[in-house]
Design a protein around this nucleic acid. Structure first.
Lengths: 340, 340
DNA sequence: ATGAAAGCGCTAACAC
DNA sequence: GTGTTAGCGCTTTCAT
């Protein structure tokens, strides 16, 4: 029924091992037999059985992807397809396949990861988001299994290869941009504090203010856990303060869109009444009104570098631990104005 | 080094086959030995090698996912993560894993699919988008390999199990909604004609107009191939016609956002000057200004049903061909007004 | 440069 | 109810 290496061997009048060598493009096979075997493969429509190959070779040429929880907001964020593009391109170039894990809870995800690692389905793993106290990364570390984290590790930062932006600096610069425009009342809107990226960006925000000698006010710091519901309310409260901010740094374009929306309802004009700097610079940023000044963090590159380096680690087990910092740049559009 | 079924067998004082039966939870094993074996597995930290299992059992418990070309606009569309959520939930429930294929060109994608099918990496495939003259679906059909298409097949519609919306009717209703509001000059903005979904929606648009006795004007039909560049221009031309439309049906929320943007630049107010009905009802639709009246097509369900039915097909090879139509509904928001 | 043979870790007859 | 055994399709020594 299914055509195996033996069938090819028979037709080509060689041993199965020779066929195997042809597949691996071994240099110790004469060009002549190579052609002969290839013709036979062609003729029979032969395709190697990957499971058999994986079983004996103890490698799979596939990379495991750990997605954020499927009921997470992150899943809806355009960040996600873009980083996937980068990962997939990095994998494709080296002929690696992609295996996905998802799950609704942290536990489901961890279980799925354990299954795929212990079951020898993958040679390495890319973690798509860095969460505080992430169990998956702890497990992989203990297991000494090759993996790369996109984002900043919660702990053991010197020992986990990761690719990240310098989010502290990036947000510091974003905040300073507003400072230079004359703003003194700048609020921060970010996602859940469970995400390392939120923590770093908050950090950068505070640093910028401190350096400028401006007091960091707790009421100016908002964490929108939910994209829609929570957000609306939070923005309303923020703008209802005795001393409302004149500018906002928002940790994500998608979030910024929601903010823009709420502001519109409140009759607050951007950038005339309020300036906004956002983050990530996804397609959305230029499609919103006003188009958002946003920090481009090179999402594609995050994914691409993560995969490239994971493959390096897989193929060379003494590849050193690396910390790859992807560059960012502020893209000015129309959501900011001078404060007078 | 790695612990195998034999090690477990030895420790538990049983035969390897018994261990295998315990894993498969065979009813012919006494509760007592089951416990004994499970303890041994626990103690040794045993995990089954999936490749070995796949090799002999000729099944993989994994589903292949065929994504749109990674350089495609579709990739950026929020449709994509949402449908993935549905797929992943359907798979998870039946303990199926997910294997992804991507590629930059149609050819790369086809090759990747052939590899994963012939290599016996997956038991079935779900195709995420339906394109005109899609080679992947032709290949799978010829190969008689289980697959489900999300969207409407280009050909052999009676012979390909697919899950789709009734896009013709949905767009017809959307158009009629505008008709009922008094609009007589309604234009259509859709994606590339390479996508079946575009064709169907265009069809529904034309049907609605015809039934209403309104002439379908070619200059009212716009296909934005590129989300940004092309779109801007197309919308401008449309609004610069001698008789510009008073309403728009747009085949996608993401596209609608771009349209909204261009209209704003042109100083055209929605819905006062122009009404818009959009499609898909992703999160974006309620975050835009004005919030978009959009046809909810139940994206999650598309993915979920596709996977569920694929698994049925995998597990029962005489499962009949099915055509699953997912319901839709118009969600009214603020992008439409009566025409006076 | 090529062949023979062992075995990767598992399942599934077939015995008993 | 459990053990024995023969592969699944491939790669990889070890010969020659």
């Amino acid at each position: 029924m299914t055509v195996t290496i033996k069938d090819v061997a028979k037709l080509a009048n060689v041993a199965p091992s020779t066929v195997s060598r042809v597949i691996a493009d071994s240099p110790r096979i004469s060009e002549e037999t190579k052609q002969k075997v290839k013709r036979a493969m062609e003729q029979l429509g032969y395709h190697p059985n990957i499971n058999a190959r994986n079983l004996v070779s103890k490698s799979t040429q596939t990379i495991g992807l750990v997605m954020p929880s499927s009921k997470d907001v992150g899943f809806q964020n355009p960040f996600f397809p873009t980083v996937l593009q980068g990962i997939s391109e990095g994998a494709q170039e080296k002929y690696y396949a992609l295996h996905m894990t998802t799950g609704k809870s942290e536990k489901e995800i961890l279980d799925a990861v354990i299954q795929m690692v212990e079951g020898r389905r993958v040679d390495g793993v890319v973690l798509l988001t860095s969460r505080v106290r992430d169990q998956v990364s702890s497990y992989l570390r203990k297991r000494k299994f090759p993996f790369v984290l996109i984002g900043k590790p919660y702990q053991d930062i010197e020992e986990i290869t990761h690719v990240d932006n310098d989010n502290i600096r990036a947000m510091k610069e974003a905040t300073e941009y507003l400072l230079h425009l004359g703003h003194r009342h700048i609020a921060f809107i970010g996602g859940t504090r469970e995400l390392m990226v939120t923590l770093d960006r908050l950090d950068g925000y505070e640093k910028a203010l401190q350096e400028a000698g401006i007091l960091v006010k707790p009421e100016y710091i908002v964490h929108e856990e939910f994209l829609r519901e929570g957000g609306q309310e939070a923005v309303r409260e923020l703008m209802a303060l005795d001393e409302p901010p004149t500018a906002l740094v928002v940790a994500d374009d998608f979030m910024a869109l929601g903010v823009l929306n709420t502001l519109d309802e409140l009759g607050i004009q951007v950038p005339q009444d309020l300036s906004i700097v956002s983050f990530n610079n996804v397609l959305l940023a230029e499609m919103s009104r006003p188009p958002l000044t946003s920090v481009d963090i090179n999402i594609f590159e995050l994914g691409y570098q993560a995969t490239k380096n994971l493959i390096l680690m897989i193929e060379n087990d003494k590849e050193p631990v690396k910390r790859l910092i992807i560059s960012h740049r502020l893209v000015e559009r129309s959501s900011c104005a001078k404060y007078n």
